[in-house]
């Protein structure tokens, strides 16, 4: 019972830190604003300049960071439960590779239709994932088969992407940012779409808690307590891939979050998904927000891709946590 209370406090505290971080992140950029200006503007006041910067540039950006972070983290947490493998994340299911291939195809061959990229990338990701699961299905679905099918499908789709970038190497410039995950220039329209889908995806993930926990006990024990492992493996994967798909569609693939956040959160609150999933939401948001703030300020005026920053600052931090092995 003490554990329950501690875990809930941790989750609430980190959610509060996320709020603070949000304000902090909006401060930095080509023009540094004061906290007063930021708060004023958010409540409808503020100078025209501050309004313009916050409402058109920084607020959309931090909101995208928070939602994408949450989605990728939850997706990774669910998939690690589904695969019973600590190395699983959404990349494994083919969703990134599928989305990338379709997005790059459009951006390079039909640049006039770039506005279709999010929708098409989402579709591409879902189709790739459907391929992986279809190939993996054999009298039911076993994690090892998903992983192997995922590796194969990723290789095929990845070579398609490479082929396109070689054939149209003159047009690669505009595509590189997308391929490394970028939060630049997201509109309120993007945010509305992302927010709607994220809401449903994250809400659905909260119904996965019990089944993700049961899968941790092994297939036989899960089946013994009446959990149909095939059905729930597919259902949990659907939720995970939906969340990852919508994120990739808007920002391009951002690595590391889906892999690392579940581990970081597990070190803090343990492996019960009742606490693990909510904390993953917060930690994922924080990490992408932090990463993106670094990405756009550290080498300013050049903006680095957030995916790159995630790897540079995230990986050593992750290793440190693993070595320390809190709890």
């Amino acid at each position: 019972m003490k554990k329950t209370r501690t875990n809930i406090s941790i989750i609430l505290l980190s959610a509060a830190s996320l709020m603070v971080l949000l304000i902090l992140a909006m401060r930095f950029g080509s023009v540094t604003l004061t906290y007063g200006e930021i708060v004023d503007t958010l409540f409808g006041g503020g100078s025209d300049l501050a309004r313009n910067i916050i409402m058109n540039v920084r607020l959309p950006r931090v909101l995208v960071a928070v939602m994408v972070g949450a989605n990728l983290a939850v997706s990774g947490t669910l998939l690690q439960a589904v695969m019973q493998n600590p190395l699983a994340d959404s990349g494994l299911t083919g969703v990134n590779a599928g989305a990338s291939l379709v997005a790059i195809f459009i951006m390079m061959l039909f640049p006039g239709y770039t506005y279709l990229v999010p929708l098409a990338a989402f579709g591409g990701g879902i189709i790739a994932c459907a391929m992986v699961y279809t190939l993996a299905w054999k009298n039911g679905i076993k994690p090892m088969r998903i992983i192997l099918a995922g590796v194969a499908v990723n290789a095929i789709l990845g070579s398609g992407t490479s082929l396109l970038s070689v054939l149209y190497s003159d047009r690669i410039q505009g595509v590189i940012a997308w391929m490394n995950g970028s939060l630049v220039g997201k509109s309120w329209g993007d945010i509305r779409v992302l927010a709607t889908y994220s809401f449903f995806g994250l809400a659905a993930s909260m119904f996965c808690i019990r089944y993700a926990n049961a899968l941790q006990l092994g297939d036989k024990m899960a089946a013994n307590v009446g959990v149909n492992t095939n059905v729930y493996r597919v259902l949990l994967s659907l939720v995970a891939v939906f969340l990852a798909g919508i994120s990739v569609a808007i920002t391009g693939p951002i690595g590391f979050i889906g892999l690392a956040v579940p581990h970081i959160s597990r070190l803090i609150v343990g492996s019960d998904h009742k606490y693990l999933l909510p904390l993953s939401v917060v930690v994922g948001s924080m990490l992408v927000l932090l990463g993106d703030t670094f990405a756009r300020t550290i080498a300013s005026p050049i903006e680095l891709p957030v995916g790159l920053i995630m790897a540079i600052i995230g990986a050593p931090f992750f290793l440190y946590l693993l070595r320390k092995g809190a709890r």
């Binding site: 941790q216 006990l217 092994g218 036989k220 024990m221 343990g270 492996s271 019960d272 709890r327």
Partner: peptide, 9 residues
């Protein structure tokens, strides 16, 4: 089953 696993925590 003959062998069962429990999450560490």
């Amino acid at each position: 089953a003959q062998v069962n696993q429990s999450p560490e925590d």
